[in-house]
C-alpha cells in the first residue's frame, strides 16, 4: 500500500496535480448539444436531398448537388456531423480504451478519420459547385 510517505516534502496537491479532470468536459457536452440540435434539422434536409436525387443521371446529380443552396446545406451537414461524431467517438474511446498507448493511438486515429472524411466530402461538394 502506498500511503503518505513521511519523508516526502511534496504536498498531496503536488502528487495529484495533472491526474485529475481536464476541465474541458462541459465544452464537449455543450458542443454535442449544439451539433445534435443542428443535426436534427440538417438530417431532415439531407434525407430530402438524397430522395430527390434517387435514380437521377450523373449530370443531373452534379447540377443539383452543385447548386448554391443544396451545396451549402450539404456543407453544413458534413461539418456539423463530422464535429459531432469526432466528439462522440472520442467519448466512446475514453470509456472503453484504458491502456495509454492504445488510447492515444485511437484518439489520434479518430482525429485523422474525421478530418480525412470531412475534408474529402467538403472538397467534393466545392468541386461540384465551382465546376472545375
Amino acid at each position: 500500500m502506498s500511503g503518505p510517505r513521511h519523508n516526502d516534502m511534496r504536498t498531496p496537491m503536488r502528487r495529484v496535480r495533472g491526474l485529475g479532470a481536464a476541465h474541458s468536459g462541459t465544452a464537449d457536452f455543450w458542443h454535442m448539444r449544439v451539433t445534435s440540435a443542428a443535426g436534427v434539422l440538417l438530417t431532415i434536409a439531407l434525407v430530402v436531398i438524397v430522395i430527390s436525387l434517387l435514380g437521377r443521371s450523373h449530370a443531373a446529380v452534379v447540377q443539383i448537388l452543385g447548386s448554391p443552396i443544396v451545396a451549402v446545406i450539404m456543407l453544413l451537414f458534413i461539418v456539423n456531423s463530422i464535429y459531432h461524431m469526432w466528439i462522440g467517438m472520442q467519448e466512446i474511446i475514453l470509456d472503453y480504451v484504458h491502456e495509454d498507448k492504445l488510447k492515444f493511438l485511437s484518439l489520434m486515429a479518430n482525429t485523422f478519420f474525421c478530418f480525412a472524411v470531412g475534408l474529402a466530402s467538403c472538397f467534393a461538394i466545392l468541386k461540384l459547385s465551382f465546376g472545375v
Partner: peptide
C-alpha cells in the same frame, strides 16, 4: 458512404 457518393459524383 456519403463521402464515396460525393467524391464519385465529383
Amino acid at each position: 458512404l456519403l463521402a464515396w457518393w460525393l467524391i464519385a459524383a465529383a
